[in-house]
Amino acid sequence: MNIFRLTGDLSHLAAIIILLLKIWKSRSCAGISGKSQVLFALVFTTRYLDLLTSFISLYNTTMKVIYIGCSYATVYLIYMKLKATYDGNHDTFRVEFLIVPVGGLAFLVNHDFSPLEILWTFSIYLESVAILPQLFMISKTGEAETITTHYLFFLGLYRALYLINWIWRFYFEGFFDMIAIVAGVVQTILYCDFFYLYVTKVLKGKKLSLPA
């Protein structure tokens, strides 16, 4: 464990908690893409199946359980409890255009053709594009609540910190995982224009509205 990975995990946890609290306290999921949240629940489900097969550390297990629990709770709030506040008309990204190519790629490019490894690879590839429905929804509505921008900031920051963690681990441990790194770079790049808007607008107290 290194400071970049720990900070990255805490940033990820902060994002997940911020979103869940925002929806729970405001009793509304307006502006939130339910599709992205379903994709994230799928990412965690396919990645953390090793909860059933191997124990790495109390921290690892605890975080995985929290991530899975919060992501399913968020999906439950959006599609069941607070369904009336779900803005389906703006959450129209065709997720099948993500799942099918990612699923195919996971079969073609992986470290080991075993079920658990292919599911892990699918989860890594899917996570790198899972935020697209949310970013697409913001571009359609033309704005985002400030709390939603903080959620996106921490979510984007987590994988950017993981990139530094992978540089650190390569240098100090000789460890690297090309699949995770390439997907992580793609994932972070997708946040770049949001990061620009976040820094130039939200951090200056303005509302995030598009076109910039």
Binding site: H12, S54, I56, N60, H111, G174, F175, D177, A180
Partner: peptide, 10 residues
């Protein structure tokens, strides 16, 4: 190639 099976990250 990566150290196999070192899935210790979240």
């Amino acid at each position: 190639c990566p150290i196999r099976g070192k899935k210790d990250e979240l």
